[in-house]
Amino acid sequence: MMKLPLPLLLVSVLAACGTAPGYQLQVQPTEARYATAARTIMVREISLPDYATDDTMARQNAAGAVEVMSRVRWADLQPRAVTLALSRQLNAMLSATVAPEPWPLSGLPDGEVDVRVDRILAGADGLFHLDGVYYVRAEGVSLGVPSRDFAITVPLPGEEPAQIAAAQSTAVAQLATQIARSVSR
């Protein structure tokens, strides 16, 4: 009988159990373009509530509590996924080059966007909610108001994970539009 090393044995057992499908955020196509005084902007890793910091998908139940959906996973950890989606959306909309933290380009960015989310959740009210505040810091250029609150709601066509993922993608795209407008000239 062949003995497998413990790490290989664990991987084999986990693979045999099967995994839940992973859902990912989609960057929304846009034709909107905004000119900004910055040449480069960095999006800091987005701060999310505890229930949204790993790869589990959560929603609000009828009693108002946040519950983790069983056997439903995001394809990536949410802080990273939302940061990347927002960065790509902003990069498509702004005249500046936008990239996520850690800064992958040479030199320092002209500006930074720091997003702190209070709620990112499929609500029991049939809406997807994305609420929080974002901060804009700039060196040597004007990027408008240094902070703004946001409260975005997107209709949920249903409670299926794919519908929640689509609504979250739309909400992140709407946040990108708000940020792009606020940092434009």
Rank of each mutant, 00 (worst) to 15 (best):
Met2His: 15
Met2Cys: 15
Lys3Asn: 09
Leu4Pro: 04
Pro5Val: 07
Leu6Gly: 15
Pro7Tyr: 10
Val13Tyr: 07
Leu14Ala: 06
Ala16Lys: 14
Ala16Ser: 15
Ala16Tyr: 13
Gly18Phe: 10
Thr19Ser: 12
Thr19Met: 06
Ala20Asp: 05
Ala20Asn: 11
Gly22Leu: 02
Gln26Glu: 12
Gln26His: 12
Gln26Ile: 07
Val27Asn: 01
Pro29Asp: 02
Thr30Cys: 10
Ala32Leu: 14
Arg33Thr: 15
Ala35Leu: 11
Ala37Asp: 14
Ala38Met: 13
Arg39Trp: 11
Ile41Ser: 14
Met42Ser: 12
Arg44Asn: 15
Arg44Thr: 11
Ser47Met: 12
Pro49Lys: 02
Asp50Tyr: 13
Tyr51His: 02
Tyr51Pro: 01
Ala52Leu: 01
Thr53Trp: 10
Thr53Cys: 10
Asp55His: 07
Arg59Gly: 02
Asn61Tyr: 07
Asn61Lys: 09
Ala63Gln: 11
Gly64Asn: 02
Gly64Val: 02
Val66Asn: 00
Val68Thr: 08
Met69Thr: 02
Ser70Cys: 13
Arg71Cys: 09
Asp76Cys: 03
Pro79Arg: 08
Val82Met: 00
Val82Ala: 03
Leu84Lys: 09
Ala85Leu: 08
Ala85Lys: 05
Ala92Pro: 04
Met93Arg: 11
Leu94Lys: 05
Leu94His: 04
Leu94Phe: 06
Leu94Arg: 04
Thr97Met: 03
Val98Asn: 08
Val98Trp: 04
Ala99Pro: 07
Pro100Lys: 05
Glu101Asn: 06
Pro104Lys: 00
Leu105Ile: 08
Leu105Arg: 06
Leu108Met: 15
Gly111Pro: 06
Gly111Val: 10
Glu112Ile: 13
Asp114Met: 11
Arg116Ser: 12
Val117Ser: 06
Asp118Cys: 04
Leu121Val: 01
Phe128Cys: 03
His129Trp: 08
His129Asp: 04
Leu130Glu: 00
Asp131Asn: 14
Gly132Gln: 02
Tyr135Glu: 13
Tyr135Leu: 13
Arg137Tyr: 13
Arg137Gln: 12
Ala138Asn: 12
Glu139Asp: 15
Glu139Gly: 10
Glu139Ser: 13
Gly140Ile: 14
Ser142Ile: 14
Leu143Met: 11
Leu143His: 06
Leu143Thr: 10
Gly144Asn: 05
Gly144Lys: 03
Val145Leu: 14
Val145Arg: 13
Ser147Glu: 14
Arg148Leu: 15
Phe150His: 07
Thr153Met: 06
Val154Met: 04
Pro155Gly: 09
Leu156Val: 05
Leu156His: 04
Leu156Trp: 03
Gly158Phe: 03
Glu159His: 15
Glu160Gly: 14
Glu160Tyr: 14
Glu160Ser: 15
Gln163Ser: 08
Gln163Ile: 03
Gln163Pro: 07
Gln163His: 13
Ile164Lys: 01
Gln168Ser: 10
Ser169Trp: 02
Ser169His: 12
Thr170Leu: 06
Val172Asp: 03
Val172Gln: 01
Ala173Asp: 01
Leu175Thr: 06
Leu175Ala: 10
Ala176Thr: 00
Thr177Cys: 01
Gln178His: 04
Gln178Thr: 05
Val183Cys: 05
Ser184Pro: 06
